[in-house]
Simulated scan of single mutants.
Amino acid sequence: MSRVVIGGSTGFIGRHLQDAYRAEGREVVTISRSGADLTWDDQPGIDAAVDGAGLVIGLAGKSVSCRYTPANRAEIFRSRLETTAALGTAIARASAPPPLWVNSSTATIYRHAEDRPMTEDDGELGTGFSVEVAKAWERALYERDLPHTRRVALRTAIVLGDAGVLGPLRRLARVGLGGTQLDGWWPVSRARREAGTAHDPGARGGRQRFSWIHVDDVLGIIDFLEQQPQLDGPVNASSPAPVDNRAFMAAVRRALGVRFGPPTPRWMLEIGALGIRTETELILKSRWALPAKLSAAGYTFRHPDLDEALRASFSEG
Rank of each mutant, 00 (worst) to 15 (best):
V5L: 11
V5Q: 06
I6Q: 05
G7S: 09
T10P: 08
R15V: 10
L17P: 13
L17S: 02
D19Y: 02
D19F: 07
E24P: 02
T30K: 09
T30F: 03
T30D: 08
S32N: 12
S32K: 04
S34T: 14
W40Q: 04
Q43E: 07
G45H: 15
D47H: 04
D51F: 05
A53G: 05
G54H: 03
A60G: 07
S63I: 05
V64T: 12
R67Y: 04
A71P: 00
N72R: 03
R73F: 03
A74K: 14
E75K: 07
R78K: 13
S79M: 07
L81Q: 00
E82F: 04
E82C: 10
E82D: 15
T83H: 02
T83A: 04
T83V: 03
T84H: 08
A90C: 03
I91C: 00
A92G: 06
A92N: 09
A92Q: 13
R93D: 11
P97E: 11
L100S: 08
I109W: 01
Y110T: 13
R111L: 10
H112V: 06
D115M: 00
D115L: 06
T119K: 13
T119A: 11
L125V: 13
G126E: 07
V133I: 10
V133G: 14
A134S: 04
A134H: 07
A134E: 04
A136I: 14
W137M: 01
A140I: 03
Y142H: 11
R144K: 08
R144I: 08
D145P: 12
D145S: 15
P147G: 08
T149D: 12
I158P: 09
D162C: 10
A163P: 01
V165Y: 06
R170W: 01
R170I: 01
R174I: 10
V175S: 14
G176T: 02
L182S: 06
A191M: 00
H199V: 09
D200Y: 11
V215M: 02
L219H: 14
L225A: 01
L225Q: 00
Q227Y: 12
Q228I: 06
Q228N: 15
G233T: 07
V235Q: 01
N236L: 14
A237Q: 04
S238G: 13
S239K: 10
P240V: 03
V243H: 15
N245K: 06
A247F: 09
L256W: 05
V258T: 07
V258Y: 04
R259I: 03
G261L: 14
G261D: 15
G261K: 12
P263Y: 07
P265L: 02
M268A: 15
I271T: 13
L274G: 14
R277Q: 12
R277E: 11
T278C: 10
T278H: 04
E279Y: 07
I283F: 15
W288C: 11
K293M: 11
L294W: 00
S295P: 10
A296I: 05
A296L: 09
T300S: 08
F301D: 10
F301R: 10
H303K: 12
L306S: 06
L306F: 08
A309E: 05
R311N: 14
R311L: 10
E316L: 14
